[in-house]
């Protein structure tokens, strides 16, 4: 690692004041630290968000729940306040030691194309709270590692609406255990259906609109379309584009069946 100054932030204001320029935010650091070890980044300082009190809690609201950006995957997985589908998703991220450290804010800010949380955000129509204001998930994720976060902004929390039904199915990449394909399916009380897919696309997490349309009429695994087009799907040593496209359909069916 190149050296950097370590700054422990105690509030969001504190953190944003310290960010900007070559400073970078660190939350759990489970992705960031390996990146820095490989000398793929050279921040002048790392601003540690893990001690920011206002980002640390899980707050149940009326028909929604807000998870602070510094809440760990483990805490989400144990919470009775978050939708069961989100808790289960959090329980499947990385491994226990990673879940004790990694946070939802870090995951959502990084927007790794194979991360789990972006699919929950998009699949539930979450609101991403940033230090620059609130952004709807549909507007927030803008492609691989690309988000609506502006310079020096951080993710302070995420509000998930409570679904009538929801489920996440993750097909793991056997080495990294990230999602080779992950599908988050939800149906709101008003019948609105979302199907969000992570891991598969070169454009990052996306909504599979054909499946949403089919499921809106009849929320049943039987109506899930066959594999979407493989154009634009990731192809690597763990799976071809066609295989990923195929898995999207299989995982969507399983998610619907499990709802």
């Amino acid at each position: 690692m190149y050296n950097f100054d370590y700054v422990k932030a105690s509030s969001v204001a504190d953190a944003t004041a310290a960010l900007g320029g070559d400073a970078q935010a660190i939350s759990g650091g489970q992705t960031l630290i390996p990146t820095l070890k490989a000398r793929l980044g050279q921040p002048s300082s790392l601003v540690d968000l893990s001690g920011v009190a206002e980002m640390s809690g899980i707050t149940a609201g009326d028909g929604s729940v807000t998870i602070g950006g510094a809440v760990t995957h483990h805490a989400v997985s144990e919470s009775g306040d978050v939708p069961a589908s989100v808790a289960a998703l959090a329980a499947g991220i990385g491994d226990p030691a990673v879940r004790h450290r990694g946070t939802i804010g870090g995951s959502v800010a990084n927007n790794d194309p194979s991360a789990c949380y972006p699919s929950a955000c998009l699949g539930l129509g979450a609101t991403i709270h940033t230090s620059g204001g609130d952004v709807a998930a549909d507007d927030y994720f803008q492609g691989m590692f690309d988000t609506a976060l502006g310079e020096g902004q951080i993710v302070t929390g995420v509000t998930f609406p409570t679904p009538a039904k929801a489920n996440y199915q993750k097909f793991v990449q056997p080495a990294s255990r990230f999602a080779l394909v992950g599908v988050f399916v939800s149906q709101m009380a008003d019948g609105y259906v979302r199907v969000a897919v992570t891991g598969a696309s070169e454009s990052g997490v996306f909504r599979w609109s054909d499946a949403e349309t089919a499921l809106a009429g009849n929320f049943s695994a039987d109506v899930v379309p066959a594999a979407p087009s493989a154009d634009g799907m990731i192809a690597d040593l763990h799976g071809s584009a066609a295989y990923r496209a195929h898995l999207i359909s299989v995982m969507t069916k399983r998610a619907v069946a499990a709802c």
């Binding site: 056997p174 080495a175 990294s176 690597d236 040593l237 763990h238």
Partner: peptide, 15 residues
């Protein structure tokens, strides 16, 4: 292409 444990799949306890 398989230059780390992120891409070289080592057998784990649950495999």
């Amino acid at each position: 292409a398989s230059g780390s444990f992120m891409d070289y799949a080592m057998p784990r306890a649950d495999d």
